[in-house]
Simulated assay, not measured.
Amino acid sequence: MTALTLENFLPYRLSIASNAVSDAVASAYRALFGLKIPEWRLVTILAEGGAMSQQALCGRTRMDKVTVSRAAIALSERGLISRASNPGDQRSHLLTLSKAGWELYEEVAPKALELERQVFAGFSDAERQLLREMLDRIETAVERLEAKG
């Protein structure tokens, strides 16, 4: 039997790296804009994809319903998102960025790109592209595992 060593266990290492990056991002967004990571993710997804239900946001962000709901409430209370009836499902609402939400996005997005540049400054363009491709493959493999149940 092969022993499990966390330092060599790739899912663990991926989680640690992800948490480290998320912590750095969270600190910057909280200090500059008073945003938590789930709130920033919702702002970004809505900026990229337009109006969406909370269920769709859960799928896009891979965050649970409670986290998405709390983030949506916080953003709504700050006037950053608007809720409208969902013509396709009367039990849900569509969330969209308000004018203030768009203004925030346009202010935060360049800072997010700069943070990404700093984190990956030691990587070549080819290495960054390879990492993106590898992450895509990991996500696809996980989706296949989840589909098998």
Results as ranks from 00 to 15, higher is better:
Leu4Val: 09
Asn8Phe: 09
Phe9Ser: 09
Leu10Ser: 11
Tyr12Val: 06
Arg13Pro: 01
Arg13Met: 03
Leu14Glu: 03
Leu14Met: 13
Ile16Gln: 11
Ser18Tyr: 13
Ala24Arg: 15
Ala28Pro: 04
Arg30Ala: 10
Phe33Ser: 05
Lys36Asp: 15
Lys36Ala: 14
Ile37Val: 14
Ile37Ala: 05
Ile37Glu: 10
Glu39Ile: 06
Leu42Gln: 00
Ala47Arg: 10
Ala47His: 12
Glu48Phe: 13
Ser53His: 03
Gln54Ser: 02
Ala56Cys: 01
Arg62Ile: 10
Met63Ala: 14
Asp64Ile: 03
Lys65Ser: 12
Val68Pro: 04
Ala71Trp: 03
Ala72Gly: 00
Ala72Ile: 03
Ala74Cys: 06
Ser76Thr: 13
Arg78Lys: 15
Ile81Leu: 14
Ser82Met: 11
Ala84Val: 09
Pro87Leu: 05
Arg91Ser: 15
Ser92Gln: 06
Leu95Ile: 01
Thr96Gln: 02
Leu97Arg: 03
Leu97Thr: 04
Ser98Ala: 00
Ser98Asn: 00
Gly101Ser: 06
Val108Thr: 00
Ala112Thr: 11
Ala112Val: 06
Leu115Met: 04
Arg117Ile: 03
Arg117His: 12
Gln118Ile: 06
Gly122Lys: 06
Ala126Thr: 11
Ala126Ser: 09
Glu127Met: 03
Gln129Val: 04
Leu130Phe: 15
Leu131Tyr: 03
Arg132Phe: 14
Glu133Ala: 12
Asp136Lys: 11
Glu139Ile: 07
Thr140Gln: 15
Val142Gly: 00
Arg144Val: 09
Leu145Pro: 02
Glu146Thr: 10
Lys148Ser: 14
Lys148Trp: 14
